[in-house]
Amino acid sequence: MRWIVLALLLANIGLFAWFQATGRAPAMVATAERLPGTGEGETVRLVSEVPAEQLAPAAAKPEPDPEPEARGESLCTLIGPFEEAYQGEDVTERLRALQLDADLRELEMKGQMRYWVFLAPRETRREAFRKLRELQAEGIDSYVIPDGSLTNGISFGIFSEPERAENLAEELRGRGHRVRTREEPQTYLERWVVMPPGEIDGLAEEFWSQLQSDYPDLGRRRNLCSEVAAD
């Protein structure tokens, strides 16, 4: 047994001397890791062989925009719409009888997008009508815009298709008129019963079912209170 141990010791000393004489270093144990996405039987590479960009942690996904309530914005409940004012008043009174805060309002709703072809507003109404007479003398259908952000401008029409608006604009530009186009959402008024945040929680489901029985087209939605505030 002693000779075996002595032989192994001499062999190790000889091997170490050989490494020193040749300038080679003993092999070191390398740390290895399985690359993401590799399964059983797939290649395992040394950490030193892996590109740096693959070792970098994955970029964090952007956080989704918080809900309005998380941003501190209050959401009101809307019940409606009502074709006739007396219908909205009836529902308002029923809710108030239950000690719930409810208010019937006419809200401006956005409809289909429209495309307006126009000339920029003139300094005065007199100048606007002077320009209108020139256009009508050329056989161009137009009118003076009486109010709004384009007061004293000249309108050539409002279209539901952008292609029609652009075609007319190009035709008028070809005749020397510096017309413009812009998108203009169509708006209309609807009657809705507005309830402040939390009030809908006091509305029993049986009561809501009765309302829908009396008004089959009745719906409810939530909207920012700032957008449905009373004037």
Rank of each mutant, 00 (worst) to 15 (best):
L8A: 05
L9E: 12
L10K: 05
N12V: 11
N12S: 10
L15K: 03
F16G: 06
F16K: 07
W18L: 14
T22P: 13
G23T: 03
G23C: 07
R24N: 11
R24H: 11
A25P: 02
A25K: 07
A27Y: 15
V29R: 00
A30G: 04
A32M: 08
L35W: 07
P36M: 12
G37L: 09
T38E: 03
G39H: 09
E40Y: 09
G41D: 05
T43V: 06
R45W: 08
L46K: 12
S48A: 12
S48E: 14
E49S: 15
E49P: 14
V50C: 01
P51T: 02
P51Q: 00
P51R: 00
A52E: 05
A52V: 09
Q54C: 15
A58I: 08
K61D: 09
E63C: 00
P66W: 13
P68W: 07
E69M: 00
A70G: 02
A70M: 09
R71P: 03
G72Q: 07
E73M: 10
S74K: 11
C76L: 06
T77I: 00
T77H: 00
L78S: 07
I79G: 09
G80R: 07
E83L: 06
V91T: 11
E93M: 08
Q99A: 09
D101Q: 07
L104F: 02
L107E: 08
E108M: 04
M109V: 03
M109Y: 00
K110Y: 09
K110N: 10
K110P: 05
G111E: 06
Q112K: 13
M113H: 05
R114I: 11
Y115D: 04
Y115K: 04
W116R: 01
V117T: 13
L119Y: 03
A120K: 11
P121R: 07
E123C: 11
E123N: 14
E123K: 15
F129K: 08
R133Y: 04
L135P: 06
L135G: 02
A137N: 02
D141T: 08
S142I: 05
S142A: 12
S142C: 10
V144I: 08
I145Y: 01
P146L: 06
D147P: 01
G148S: 07
S149R: 08
L150T: 04
S155V: 05
S155F: 02
F156E: 01
S160A: 09
A165P: 14
N167K: 09
N167W: 09
E170K: 10
E170T: 05
R173E: 10
G174K: 12
G176Y: 13
V179S: 03
R180C: 00
E183F: 14
E183W: 14
E184S: 11
P185K: 00
T187H: 00
T187N: 01
T187Y: 00
T187Q: 01
Y188Q: 04
Y188M: 10
W192Q: 06
V194N: 06
V194W: 12
P196H: 12
P197R: 15
G198N: 05
G198C: 10
L203D: 02
A204I: 10
E205P: 15
E205D: 14
E206L: 03
F207S: 10
Q210R: 11
S213A: 11
S213V: 07
S213P: 09
Y215L: 05
P216T: 11
P216A: 10
R220Y: 12
R221Y: 06
N223S: 14
L224M: 15
A229Y: 12
A230K: 06
